[in-house]
C-alpha cells in the first residue's frame, strides 16, 4: 500500500530541470500531496511565470509518481494562489543552492514596493565574501540573476528574490 509519505520520498528525488541541485520539494512548489481512491493528487505552484521548465516539472512529477501508483493515476492541479515565492525554498534547499554555487535568495520577498529598491548585497557562494555586486538582474534562466564577487573576482549566479 502506497502512502503519501512514499510519494513525498519519491518527489524528493525529482530534480528541478534547470537547477538540478534542488528537488521539487526543496523548491517549495509542492503545495499538496494526497492518496486518492485509484491514484494520487498533487498540487503544484508554478515558480516564475515565464519559466519554460514549468511543463517539464509537471511531466517529471507525473512520471515519478506513476512509478508508484500506476500510469494514468496521477492528477496534477496547478495552484496559483497564494503565489509561489522564493521564501518557500526550504532551509535545506538554500544550503544545497549555495553548495551548488548559486547564491540563495534572501528571505525578504515581501518588503519590496519601491521602484528604486536597494538590493541587499549577497555573499559570494565560493569565498563567502560580502563584497559583491550585481551585474545583471536577469540571468541564464528565469530564476537567476548575475553577480560578481569583488574579492575572489569570480562571477556567480543568484536565485532571484520574488
Amino acid at each position: 500500500m502506497v502512502s503519501a509519505d512514499d510519494l513525498r520520498k519519491r518527489l524528493n528525488l525529482v530534480p528541478d530541470p534547470e537547477v538540478p541541485a534542488l528537488s521539487v520539494l526543496d523548491l517549495g512548489i509542492v503545495r499538496g500531496l494526497r492518496m486518492m481512491p485509484g491514484g494520487c493528487e498533487v498540487d503544484l505552484s508554478p515558480t516564475y511565470t515565464g519559466c519554460p521548465a514549468t511543463e517539464v516539472i509537471e511531466r517529471d512529477v507525473r512520471e515519478a509518481l506513476e512509478e508508484l501508483v500506476g500510469p494514468g493515476n496521477v492528477r496534477i492541479q496547478t495552484v496559483l494562489d497564494p503565489p509561489w515565492t522564493s521564501d518557500w525554498i526550504s532551509e535545506e534547499g538554500l544550503r544545497k543552492l549555495e553548495a551548488y554555487g548559486i547564491a540563495p535568495p534572501p528571505k525578504r520577498s515581501s518588503d519590496k514596493r519601491s521602484l528604486l529598491g536597494l538590493s541587499i548585497p549577497l555573499n559570494c557562494p565560493r569565498c563567502k565574501s560580502s563584497q559583491t555586486e550585481r551585474i545583471s538582474a536577469f540571468g541564464s534562466t528565469a530564476c537567476k540573476a548575475l553577480h560578481r564577487c569583488l574579492d575572489c573576482q569570480e562571477p556567480f549566479e543568484a536565485f532571484k528574490c520574488i
Partner: peptide, 21 residues
Amino acid sequence: LAAIARKALKETTYRAQHSSE
C-alpha cells in the same frame, strides 16, 4: 483573476525596478 494578478505583481515589481534603474 485575483490569483493571476497576485502572482504577476511580484514579477511586475521586479520588471519595474529594472526599467526604472
